[in-house]
């Protein structure tokens, strides 16, 4: 009796998980690296795709271009890039991140996440939203999480 009820309950839970999702493709091209000069945060893809393209040498002194997911690591609001103060500031609970994505104020527990980025065969940069790289796990060393800033 108890076992049967449990099976029914689990089946019910499984039923609530859809098998097919209708969501936009995760890979997209963002143009040549030269569109992204050093020291800039591009908000060009923010509205459509939810990423910032960052070109900075402020993370461990290396000149890199990478894509940051515009999802606050606290509760998933979209932070605003404040050009004047050179930081991402989340409107929900005031978390702040440096230009390189590392958190420094407010309740966010960890840095913003990088997304996959690579140089496609046609010379354009391509972002892959299906993979993510977390700084605190040491994944920002992964070569799929950035491209060389000298390309720009």
């Amino acid at each position: 009796m108890a076992a049967t009820s449990l099976i029914w309950l689990l089946d019910l839970a499984r039923f609530m998980f859809p098998n097919v999702l209708v969501e936009p493709p995760t890979k997209f091209k963002i143009g040549p690296a030269s569109d992204y000069p050093l020291g800039g945060v591009s908000t060009k893809w923010l509205a459509a795709r939810g990423v910032w393209i960052v070109h900075t040498d402020q993370y461990k002194g290396r000149n890199l271009i990478y894509a940051l997911a515009s999802v606050c690591t606290h509760l998933g609001c979209t932070p605003n890039w404040l050009e004047g103060e050179q930081k991402y500031k989340c409107p929900c609970h005031g978390s702040g991140f440096y230009i390189n994505g590392v958190n420094f104020e407010g309740p966010a527990p960890r840095p913003l996440e990088r997304l996959g980025i690579k140089l496609a065969s046609d010379g354009q940069l391509e972002v892959d939203k299906s993979v993510k790289f977390q700084e605190e796990m040491g994944q920002w060393e992964d070569s799929n999480s950035f491209v060389d800033g000298a390309l720009a």
Partner: peptide
């Protein structure tokens, strides 16, 4: 709009006590 977060972005008012707690403790 899924990309334009209003500033400030608030939960319904009866949950604002919980949202305030989020400033001090993790989700």
């Amino acid at each position: 709009s899924a990309v334009k977060t209003p500033n400030p972005s608030k939960a319904p008012w009866y949950f604002l006590g919980l949202q305030e707690m989020l400033v001090y403790y993790d989700p």
